[in-house]
Simulated scan of single mutants.
Amino acid sequence: MTPASELAATTSLPIGSDADLAWVRHQVRRLAAELGFGLVQQTKLVTAASELARNTLVHGGGGQAEITPVTDGPMRGVQLVFADTGPGIRDVELAMSDGYTTGGGLGLGLSGAKRLMDEFAIDSEPGRGTVVTVTAWATGTPGAPAGPR
């Protein structure tokens, strides 16, 4: 997987306020539309981005989002990286389970984002922070997966 050379490079956005969350959502939707994602795909991508950006703000104390257009052969996609230097996650497996929450919500943020994306990776350690990397592929491009794996 390589950045799509004909498209813009990585966009880095700070996450430190609710206004930043809205800007992240806007930029993700804009890029997904440019890459030919359908409306349903755009909605899934923006929903996952919103959940992960909110986690970065609320649980990580703020951080950064990176939005990158990517290609893999003929496939076009969007890779999102959300990073913070907050307290980290003690038990990633537990945090990924449906219904687990430390913030009083529904407990579907991380697990829900994983279900919405084609690729999902999380790297977290107590005291070191958290990095979540997700990728979605436009289903209209040759070789793209039919939907989240």
Rank of each mutant, 00 (worst) to 15 (best):
Q42W: 00
T141N: 03
V92Y: 13
G127S: 10
E66C: 05
A113L: 02
V28Y: 04
E6Y: 13
D18T: 11
S97P: 00
D72N: 15
V78P: 01
T47N: 07
A121P: 00
M1S: 14
P142Y: 09
G99C: 06
D118C: 06
E6D: 15
S5M: 14
R128V: 09
M75L: 04
G109P: 05
F82N: 05
V132D: 01
L94Y: 04
D98M: 05
T139A: 14
S111Q: 06
T101M: 07
A95L: 07
L39I: 06
T85I: 07
D98N: 04
A48T: 01
A121F: 05
L52Y: 11
L116D: 01
V131L: 13
L106D: 09
A32V: 00
T10C: 07
L57A: 07
G147D: 04
A136P: 00
A22I: 07
L31Q: 12
G88N: 06
R54K: 15
L21I: 06
R25D: 15
M96W: 05
A138E: 00
A146E: 13
G61H: 02
I89H: 10
A19W: 08
R149F: 02
A95G: 02
M96E: 11
I15L: 12
R115A: 04
K114Y: 01
S124R: 14
T85S: 14
